[in-house]
Amino acid sequence: MTGWRLTGVLLAATLAAGQASARPVEPGSSDDHAYAYDTQRQRFMDGAALQRRGLSIDVPSWVEDGAFVQLSIELMGARPPVEVLVLRDGEADARIARLRIHQWQEPLRLGTRVRLPASQTLAVLARDIDGRVWQAEQAVEVLGSSCLAPLPPGVDWGEIRLWADVQAGGFALRSLLRHPMETGRRPAAEGGRLPRWLLARLSIEGATGPVLALEAFEGLAANPLLHLVLPARVAPVRLDYVDDRGERRLAQWPSAE
């Protein structure tokens, strides 16, 4: 395996106050409808007809731990930029992540981990610059067990793990940010709930311009993970994570060290 490694936080800075902060959505609230699966899907589709082929997703049909469900996406034949919306149909807030991808090595290959509190359908929608729309979905059965432990509360965030496998003409980038992605719904040991604390967005800039912008919602799993295959010309790439408390982390591949 050939690659470069970056560990550690390259920069930690607090952004100015006023970062956009997603609010928790309670079932039955006025936001419930706006963030519901059907609403989100219809808005994204905007009346477009679905392409018959080109988009596929790889996700297990059943999992023991719904807190970390691996999702891989492959899209062939799209023209940049592509908008991707990842949804789940069993939660009040259906949103998992919304992405805008400007550069990739064909076919577009993207991976992450999502959070499914219960059995439901996972859906991925994509739309390219020509207005073509794709959709793929898969039911996932969550067979959770009390034998498994949830992520402990109070995990500090901040460390970015970054690695790339060099392939023919490109590189497979993978990044993991340690972050609790607290939804504001988990009970706290001392009563009440653990405060909501989510990643807000991730952007990747390359030598050839913007690569990806990701908007994260509470359906994205803790310790957000991203896989993306990019052409060699895009390197070096710079990752910029910002959370809903206004904190920011940066990393670069290859490392400038």
Partner: peptide, 9 residues
Amino acid sequence: AKDSFSKQA
């Protein structure tokens, strides 16, 4: 390979 484990605490 996991983020948490059985009987972790």
